[in-house]
Design a protein around this nucleic acid. Structure first.
Length: 192
DNA sequence: TCCAGGATGTTCT
DNA sequence: GAACATCCTGGAC
């Protein structure tokens, strides 16, 4: 299938906007064993110093400095023993990233199942820690750019026009008073 | 910057 | 209800 990658400018806008518009887009992971692909079904937006749930909240550190930098770059961090996959997205001079929480697998399902053996397809990528195992995303992908065609992980446009729902973010104890989680309605791969 | 003891959900019997 | 899996907290290196 032909791939039209989303341009860098796509990510240089308000974080929540980018999070909402990433729904339905195609996440493509190139590996030596072939291409793994899925449609983004659930995202969350995280801002900077004003957002108590954000990794940037406690100030700029080495591992999170990328949230201040070029939009479109991949931000990977570790929570417990899982990797979280984020894409940096913010307006110029701002801070922020979008966490990808769920995918609908559309290509390379057999390879994903080898990476993460589960009984039902639904368990494969329906959660942030799950999809990184299935797609083999780890710290080595940190700093690559999803708008760069040579990147091991890229995001391409699609014809899908999803029915979008929103809610408060999941697992966040001190949340902001706005809804920053976005998901495709009726999509079985959305977590919980 | 890395790792892990729990809280919380999720799937079994 | 119990076992299991996930995961944006908080500690130690």
């Amino acid at each position: 299938m032909e791939s039209k990658f989303l341009p860098r400018e796509f990510y240089g806008r308000d974080t929540a906007n980018v999070a909402r518009e990433l729904l339905g887009k195609r996440l493509i992971r190139r590996t030596e064993h072939g291409i793994l692909e899925g449609v983004i079904a659930e995202t969350e937006a995280y801002y900077g110093l004003k957002d108590p749930a954000s990794r940037a909240f406690n100030g700029r550190k080495n591992y999170n400095r990328i949230m201040w930098e070029t939009p479109g770059r991949v931000f990977v961090y570790n929570v417990h023993r899982y990797w979280m996959f984020n894409v940096v997205a913010h307006e110029p001079g701002e801070i922020g990233a979008v966490l990808v929480r769920a995918l609908e697998p559309t290509g390379g399902v057999e390879a994903m199942m080898r990476n993460r053996p589960v009984k039902s397809l639904r368990e494969l990528t329906s959660g942030p820690g799950r999809l990184t195992i299935a797609l083999r995303i780890d710290k080595s992908m940190h700093g690559t750019n999803v708008a760069d065609p040579d990147s091991p992980i890229v995001i391409a446009d699609s014809e899908i026009d999803p029915d979008i729902g929103s809610s408060k973010r999941i697992g966040v104890t001190r949340d902001l008073d706005i809804e920053l989680r976005f998901y495709i309605r009726e999509n079985p791969f959305v977590s919980r």
